[in-house]
Amino acid sequence: MLISLLLMIYETWLVGLYAEQSYRRKVELLKRNGCVIIASPSNVRWLVGTEGGIVLIDETKEVMVAPKLELDRIRKSVEWIEVIEGPRGSLWKKVRDLCSGPYYADLAYLNYSQANSLVSEFKAKDVSKEIARLRRSKDEYELKTIKSALKIAEDAFKITWEELREGITELQAAGILEMRMRELGAQEYAFNTISAFGENSAEPHHIPSARKWGLNEIALFDFGAVVNGFRSDITRTFAPDRRSEWMIAVLEAVNESMKAVREGVRASDIDAIARNVLKEYGYEKAFIHGLGHGVGADIHEPPYLSPSSNDVLVEGDVVTIEPGIYFQGEGGIRVEQMVVVKRNGWEVLNELPALWY
């Protein structure tokens, strides 16, 4: 009992150490001769692991400015940055008091009004491209955190699957899966969980309904968890009887496209491989979305694996490979794996079998 407690304390300390090292690395790469304003919730989450304020970085310090109602929560979760109170809805008013220009900001991540305010008041220059580049290559802490979020999601699904019974509704199944993720440590859901039964599985972004499940019907689940600001994304489909050929085609598209994943490969080329596999089965018109996308602080972020993408894979990218085929009125199959890009290949992050029966 004591050993288990000590191991838990050590693991918590180690995670905190990795988190702070990751933060320090990012800060050093973001520093400019002036003040960098990180204002987008997405980028604040990527930088410090939580959101609710803005982060100011200059050559000598970093400060997070947050409204009073967020102060205690943020201070408990982020110990390595000073957190001070700013007026709710007007956090910009603290900027000049805390750091001087020239000013830089993540303008492209903000809405027009926010970006326009920063440009007109501070003459801020955009550093969004630099931030986007930094966000692509996941460091050791980020990768560990994404793996943790994925393990929670997969373990929750295994428990949920054992609880499914004939007659359960899509809403009930989604609710059980989300509850199990929470019980296993998810701080949030990565997005609204999709559970789709029978013909509803032909809708890639189906919203769960009161539709009941029959044991001989397709059951598709698309879900993910959040840990310390980073997300996981996974899809598994149960495909009985005559729909097994659909599954075989989709699994082949997953496996063949993954073989091409490595640094320097065009994302559109990987998408094309999956499409060519499905074309051989006669299903090319049933594949109606891109092959995948990056995952990190956001559930959808660069690179995008699609026919129109100009992205090129870099080492450290975490991407999804998720071909799917959909037949209106009948159903659909999608399998989604999470993969980290290596210099000369890839690593599948999933432990849950892709073929689910």
Rank of each mutant, 00 (worst) to 15 (best):
V78S: 12
Y304A: 07
V348K: 15
W356F: 10
L313M: 01
V348E: 10
E203Y: 15
L29S: 12
R135F: 02
L305G: 07
L47W: 00
E301W: 02
D317M: 03
L69Q: 13
N310W: 12
K61R: 15
K125N: 05
W213V: 08
I270H: 00
E59I: 10
R211C: 03
E203W: 11
A186I: 08
T145Q: 00
D155K: 10
N216I: 08
L71P: 00
V95Q: 06
I131V: 10
P323Y: 02
N276A: 10
H293S: 10
G316R: 06
S201L: 03
W92K: 07
R243C: 12
N33S: 13
D155Q: 14
I218V: 14
I168T: 09
F191A: 07
D58E: 09
P102R: 07
L71N: 01
V341W: 06
S195D: 05
A297W: 05
N200Q: 04
E336R: 09
L5Q: 11
P87G: 09
L30E: 03
E263Y: 04
I207A: 06
A267G: 01
A186W: 02
V340H: 09
V312H: 01
A225Q: 00
L29V: 11
V48Q: 11
D72R: 15
K94T: 02
G229L: 01
K68F: 14
E188R: 08
A202S: 12
E51G: 08
T169F: 13
S232P: 05
E178N: 05
R135V: 09
L177Q: 02
G86D: 05
W213T: 05
E199R: 08
K212A: 04
S232T: 00
L177C: 05
